[in-house]
Structure formats: structure tokens, C-alpha cells
Design a protein around this nucleic acid. Structure first.
Lengths: 191, 191
DNA sequence: GGCAGCATGTAACGTGTTACATGATTTC
DNA sequence: GAAATCATGTAACACGTTACATGCTGCC
């Protein structure tokens, strides 16, 4: 489960965190950039508690419901670190790429060499994919199959191609920029 | 359902398309950049057939199972266009942003002015978000709450900040690049 | 002989989303 | 007086994933 590890990571960073605050942090930080529902966070925290990866303290409030402040346990920390240090196994989709960068956000507490090993696994895979896009195995469908659009009017074909070519170029450049980002972080961590 | 409209769009682009080919196109084109399972495509096509948005022709093959080649119906085309021309309603997450650009890939057959209206809705929203990131309402959690990491060792804090600041900067620039992409497509479509 | 590719599909499971439920306080 | 914010949670539903099932061809 992805969310479980993100919550674990946040709880490590900031002990005594409530489920409500976790949602705010995930949604208001540029790094994560995804939506979570409280109705998904609460059962996940319950599950983490059952596994004894986290514990919580109940805080009574006036006029507001009780608040549960979560803290990571030793077992939880071991699990978190094990998940974070797994090298990057790439799949050709956004979700997987975003997950890689989300995990990077959560590993600031690890030894520098472990973070760099993780970054290196990312550099390796992204370099490989950039190559594959260029040499063809992941080439855009319009480049490999030019006849793909042959059954629709030429005016429409032209518009499709304009959009596809621009988006294709954007994605290729996106990979290169992600590589630069990783190299920059690596360099800064070394200092 | 998102997938239904992507399949509809692909079927319009290339009439007589099989479910199996749709998976290949989605996964091997840089634009879509996401994973789909055949076990998700087939029930979706069944559903589209029941709604009479598509029809299919059965092709018997030697040594291979029968192949179903799908074609869009008039009703299906109306539904597709209605979905595509909806202006961009932004949510602050990757999935939604990617969906916007995926829809753009599918609208090459629309009138140029309709595509431009869609692009303009995107430019408007993305400009607004870029502003919000800069002025603070979507600022990175580390910029608004510097004390967020105060309970962990300073060495760890420093590493977290290095990673977060770089990823934050990347996302900010990403929005600007998406804007440039939209402006380029708009300009090229006008010629 | 085994595995990958073509081509379809169902069933079970896991995850994510929407709707519902509570309830005081603050803001418009 | 209505809506938003804080703070928790459950239930039903939609969607996505993994596993299973079939079966022939071509390649190593």
C-alpha cells in the first residue's frame, strides 16, 4: 500500500501528527501533488496501529472531537526504511515515476550514501528509458505507425499530429529534466 | 469513467481497433504514459457496446482467437465530443493534470476554435495555480512551516530540505513549461 | 520443451471515492 | 442563517489489479 508508507514517512518527520494534518500536508505541498481523502487516511492509520508500526496519543479538545496524535514505533521505522531503500523498479507510467520522487521526499533521515544509491538507481533507469524513447521501442505511435490516422480526414490528421508531436517532445524533455533534477540533488547532498 | 473516453477517442482516430491493440497504443505512446490492463479494457468495451457508443465486427483468425474490431457510433461520437469540450476544471494533483493533457491528445478532430477554447481554459487555470504556488496558498510545507522538522536531528533536517527545495523548484518550473507547451500548440494550430 | 506473443474473457481482491454521520466554533 | 473549519469515522460503491482460464503459433 502506497499511502501507508507516505503516512509513515510523514509521522517520522513530524512526530505527534493527526490524520487531519496529514491530509493537509500531502495536498498543500508541491512535492506530493496528489489528492487523498480522510476516509482513506483513517482506515490506513487504523491498519498501521494494528500492525504496531505507529502508536497514538489521544488529545481532548474543547468544542472539537478528540485528536489522535501518531508517532512511529521502532518496528515502523524499520519497515519504512526497508521500503525506502528498495531500488527503483521502473514501469512506463506517470504514477510509478511520481512514486519514485515521492519516496525521495521521505528519505531525508537515511544515511547520505543510501539516498545516493536510491538516486543512482533512478538515474540509471531514467537514462535507459530516455534512450528507449529515442531509439524507438517506446516511440510515439504516430512515429511508428504513420498510417494510424489514415482513415480520418487530412485536416483532422494534421491537428492530431500537431498536438501529439508537441506532447511527445515535451515528455522526452521531461525525462531529461528529471535526470538533471536527480543529479542536482545528488551533488547538493554530497556537500 | 476515464478509460471509456480514452478508448472512444482511440476508436474514433482509428476505426476497426481491437481491445488488444488499444492497450498497446496507450502503453507505447509517450502521450498517455500510463498502464492499463486488458482485464480492464474488455469490460469497458462491453459497457460501451451496451450503451451503443460503439459497435464491433468479429474477425475470424487461424490459430488465434476471434478478434473484435470496434467502430464508434454517431451517439458515441456525440458523447466523446461533449466530454472533450468540457473546459478544464483543475484539481491540485498529477492525475488531473495528466488527464487534461490526455484529453488534448484525443481532440484533433474537433474544430480548431474548440481546441483553442480548451487550451485557453488550461492556460487560465495553470497560470492561476502558478500564481498560487508563488504567493503561498499552495506553498511547500517547508516554506510555510519551518518548524515542521524541528523534532528530528539537524543533519536529517538538512537533507530533507535539500530534497524538498529541489523538488519544489522543479514543480514550479514544470507548471511554467506546461504553459509554454500549451501556447506552442495553440500557435501551431492557428497556422 | 518452455516461453513469448496474439486475443479474448471472468472472478476475486485491493484500493480509492462519494456519501453519510456527528458536533461545536468561527466567519460571511 | 448558511457555510466553512476542525476532527473523527463508517458504509456503499466504483475503479484498478492480480490471478485464473483458454488455445494456437513461432522462436530459442
Amino acid at each position: 500500500m502506497k499511502l501507508a508508507y507516505i503516512l509513515l514517512g510523514l509521522i517520522y518527520m513530524h512526530p505527534d501528527l493527526s490524520g487531519y494534518e496529514m491530509k493537509y500536508i500531502i495536498e498543500h505541498s508541491t512535492g506530493f501533488f496528489f489528492k487523498v481523502h480522510l476516509s482513506q487516511i483513517y482506515p490506513t492509520l487504523k491498519h498501521l496501529t494494528e500492525k504496531q508500526w505507529v502508536t497514538f496519543e489521544v488529545i481532548k479538545q474543547k468544542g472539537k472531537p478528540d485528536m489522535k496524535l501518531y508517532t512511529i514505533t521502532e518496528t515502523g521505522k524499520v519497515e519504512l526504511d526497508a521500503c525506502l531503500t528498495e531500488p527503483y523498479h521502473f514501469e512506463y507510467n506517470w504514477e510509478n515515476l511520481n512514486m519514485y520522487f515521492s519516496k525521495l521526499l521521505l528519505m531525508g533521515h537515511l544515511d547520505t550514501e543510501d539516498i545516493i544509491a536510491y538516486i543512482d538507481s533512478g538515474i540509471k533507469v531514467i537514462t535507459q528509458i530516455t534512450e528507449e524513447i529515442r531509439t524507438g521501442s517506446f516511440a510515439d505511435i504516430f512515429q511508428t505507425k504513420e498510417s494510424f490516422l489514415s482513415n480520418i480526414p487530412p485536416v483532422e490528421q494534421k491537428q492530431y499530429l500537431t498536438i501529439w508531436e508537441n506532447e511527445h517532445r515535451f515528455i522526452c524533455e521531461e525525462f531529461e529534466r528529471r535526470l538533471t533534477l536527480l543529479e542536482t540533488i545528488k551533488k547538493e547532498l554530497k556537500d
